[in-house]
Design a protein around this nucleic acid. Sequence first.
DNA 1: GCCGTCGTATTGACATTCTATACGAGTGAC
DNA 2: GTCACTCGTATAGAATGTCAATACGACGGC
Lengths: 110, 110
Amino acid sequence: MARPPAALLQGTLDLLILKALNLGALHGLGVSRRIEAITRGTFLVKPGSLFPALHRMEEAGWLAASWGNSENNRRARYYKLTAAGRRQFESEVSQWERIATAIAYALQAT
Amino acid sequence: MARPPAALLQGTLDLLILKALNLGALHGLGVSRRIEAITRGTFLVKPGSLFPALHRMEEAGWLAASWGNSENNRRARYYKLTAAGRRQFESEVSQWERIATAIAYALQAT
DNA sequence: GCCGTCGTATTGACATTCTATACGAGTGAC
DNA sequence: GTCACTCGTATAGAATGTCAATACGACGGC
């Protein structure tokens, strides 16, 4: 099993979470749903990937979290970007562009 | 350290090796050098990443290898794509395009 | 009260990449 | 002929990130 059709490429999850939260604060599952929406259903982020990532990013100071209630009146933890998180987002976007450009070059090579 | 400036995105190494060999047979270090060339110096693949990957891909039947001599008259192991390797290459290219497109969508979202 | 859903969380396995190190063989200088 | 250097291959060990599976509390509908 080389890779089970690769739900997502390792290294892109942070970028997608940052983008999702750059569009506005959300609770955990909301992040997951927004990622699915903005990638047109291409990326489905499972809880086992999502929550460790959110905790790691909060730890890194990119996200600020607070408890609140969801639309369905459930206890939910809301995340939003910090200033450092916005900088990190910018940085990851340009990193992604560098990589995507390089691979586009590579695939064109003759 | 979140990621040591991420020499490369996990999952793209196979694609780049397949592309390099799709341009013609090469020995190990030659693959490394060709990847650096076609990505305009963006991806530098170290031996410790390269050789395990080559062995894994040979094991998977995507590459066929044979001993020969390099231009510098060194003992070198030459790799070329098998038919399965070419199919795998096509598959990874379209996989990459799906992913790159999805992330482009995501980054445009408002 | 019971059941389905929402939302968060953890555990254990797995694959991949990186750093560091190693070694044999050919080459050129002297 | 031997020293230093490069070429080319190779592996061990550690770190990281993702996934599958599972769990649990609380709310709402009936």
